[in-house]
């Protein structure tokens, strides 16, 4: 196992070493296996954090949360890398995306661009090119608030994580519901292949206080399939943004599923969103604003699926 010593507040600082430095130094561990990483975390407990791209920890440090005494870098764990197609149960096909894959690589990957365009789109809206070059898809998920999560929820993504003894796989939605963030090591994402539908629509919209390089106030993603009679046969709606944990809008989905898109149905859907989504207020916008925007965007997208609209 590699281990290096970094300076506590400036990892890449080039100033000459000074006498006080050792007092603020921290250890950077570079395990090669996920099990080793887990053991290190167990050993150092709260004085250790996992780190991959480091973009979030770096920002938190800037905001006043110092680095812990030990950083467990996941960078050298091979199994957490790469993008590849794989078959599951001989029938369903998945795209496996290693958790360490940088956001920039995900965004540009031809397979993702072709089959899971919504993910690429959502990543385009995350932070800035520099952050996307460092930040990883796993990191965007593991803290539970990343902008890609609503898109992944409507893509019905699964995650694979290491729970201390073995790798587990479940849908991202139930993973997010059941586990507090950052307790496990997410090793990869599994994106299911979709069958081609005649009338389908998916959308992703992030609203921030400016056009780019901005935390989300509200992020909305949706996927809807209708049959020839405008009957909704598949619907997934997800919202997130700010420090709000992303969620599926299940009540609204249930109202839409199996029904024909009409003005009346959309009004019901609009009201359902108001009832089931309770985003928080902050000094910049109210929860009411977030909810209204979510409902506006979802209903306006569905409206275009109505006949003659």
């Amino acid at each position: 196992m590699d281990k290096t010593t970094g300076n506590g507040s400036r990892l890449s600082h080039s100033d000459p070493p000074t006498t006080g430095e050792e007092q603020t130094s921290i250890m950077v561990w570079k395990p090669k296996q996920v099990e080793e990483a887990w053991e290190l975390k167990k050993r150092f407990g709260d004085d250790a954090k996992y780190i991959s791209g480091g973009t979030l920890l770096q920002m938190q440090r800037e905001q006043g949360t110092p680095f812990p005494g030990h950083l467990i870098s996941l960078e050298n764990i091979q199994e957490m890398n790469g993008i590849s197609k794989l078959e599951d149960n001989c029938s369903d096909a998945y795209l496996r995306v290693g958790a360490l894959t940088s956001l920039a690589v995900c965004k540009k990957d031809p397979l993702i661009q072709e089959g899971w365009q919504l993910l690429a789109e959502s990543i385009s809206d995350i932070a800035s090119p520099a952050v996307r070059n460092r930040g990883t898809i796993g990191g965007n998920i593991v803290y539970g608030v990343g902008d890609s999560i609503p898109a992944l929820l409507v893509l019905d993504a699964k995650v694979s994580w290491f729970d201390g003894t073995k790798l587990q796989v479940d849908s991202l939605w139930s993973y997010l519901k059941n586990f507090a963030s950052n307790q496990h090591i997410i090793t990869s994402l599994l994106l299911p292949e979709k069958s081609v539908s005649i009338q389908e629509k998916s959308w992703f919209k992030k609203v921030g206080r400016r056009e780019s390089f901005i935390p989300s106030l509200i992020t909305i993603a949706g996927y809807c399939v209708c049959d020839y009679d405008q009957m909704v046969v598949d619907i997934k709606l997800a919202v997130g943004g700010g420090s709000h944990h992303p969620q599926r809008l299940k009540i609204c989905e249930d109202i839409l599923y199996g029904s024909k898109i009409t003005d009346h149905l959309l009004l019901e859907a609009y009201e359902a969103i108001n009832a089931e989504f309770h985003p928080i207020s902050d000094p910049f916008v109210s929860g009411e604003y977030r909810r209204t925007v979510a409902a506006n965007v979802i209903v306006s997208e569905l409206l275009t699926m109505q006949a003659n609209r």
Binding site: V207, R209, L217, D263, L266, L267, Y270, E271, F284, V285, S286, Y289, T292, V293, A295, N296, V299, S300, L303
Partner: peptide, 22 residues
């Protein structure tokens, strides 16, 4: 000028009037 104030001002919070827009 905030987006929230514009959204409130454009009076499209009530669904019925909102649906007629556009």
């Amino acid at each position: 000028i905030s987006s929230e104030e514009i959204l409130n001002a454009s009076g499209k919070r009530s669904v019925t009037s909102w649906m007629k827009v556009g």
